[in-house]
Computed example of a mutant assay.
Amino acid sequence: MMANLFSSFDPSTNLNLSLNWTSSMLGILIIPPFYWLIPSRLNFLWMKIIFTLHKEFKNLNKTPKFNGSTLMFISLFSLIMFNNFLGLFPYIFTSTSHLSLTLSLSLPLWLTFMLYGWLNNMIHMFAHLVPQGAPSPLLPFLVLVETISNIIRPGTLAIRLTANMIAGHLLITLMSNSGPNMNLSLLNLLIFSQILLLMLESAVALIQSYVFSILATLYSKEVN
């Protein structure tokens, strides 16, 4: 049963090919007509979201020479949100439920920020390791704690997104497996619970993409 339960997160198929990863490329087929057709309400809504995110990221990263970096974080938000919502449809592989994808997003970002910070603002980076006003006897311990917390940042970013995507899908699957053994009244309650859970998963898909991009923006701010 456990093998069947987790089989939805298996990227391999019956042909022994990782064809499920092609779900991440569906945007190439969907997004272009979105920009070529006459602007619709959906188009205006998406542009409103982009401008709102731009203002949010610009307020967080107040360094003038890095204003263009908001486009990178908006693209990151769009990619994660698109793949999160795709995973809510039946028989579509959820690529963001795998660490191979989430680590591929978080680790290069973190490495780039660290290399830039230590090569250009070394004194500033050392200052981040020592909290202001900390007692002198605790300084070695605080430096060790800050160093460890800095190193595990890409892992926490990736695991947070992966765990939230897996948890909701597993809960929906477990509740669905109990449906055939229920009577009609309990089945109606189960369907209502599944609808509420699907609404919650839709909110989680949006929130987790926002959290990922916001945290990446905050990490980039620390190296400026």
Rank of each mutant, 00 (worst) to 15 (best):
H169A: 13
H169L: 10
M175H: 06
R160N: 11
S185V: 11
P154K: 09
P140A: 05
P154W: 07
I148Y: 14
R153N: 11
I159E: 07
L142W: 03
L174R: 10
L190M: 13
L171F: 03
R160A: 10
A158F: 07
L174W: 03
I166F: 04
R153F: 10
I191K: 06
N150M: 09
M165P: 01
G179P: 01
S176Q: 12
L170T: 02
S178T: 09
A163R: 07
T147P: 04
R153H: 07
S178Y: 06
F141M: 13
T147C: 03
A134I: 11
A134P: 00
N181F: 14
S193F: 05
S178V: 05
V143M: 14
E146I: 01
R153C: 06
G179M: 13
V145M: 06
N183F: 02
I151M: 12
V145S: 05
P140K: 02
N183Y: 00
F192Y: 06
L138T: 13
P137I: 04
I166D: 04
G133K: 10
G179D: 10
P154V: 03
R160Y: 07
P131C: 03
I172H: 09
L174K: 12
P137W: 15
L144I: 10
T162K: 06
S136T: 15
R153K: 14
A163D: 07
S149N: 15
T147F: 09
P154N: 14
A167S: 11
L161I: 07
N177W: 12
Q132D: 14
H169K: 13
L190H: 14
F141D: 06
G179L: 15
I148R: 01
Q132V: 11
P135Y: 04
G155S: 13
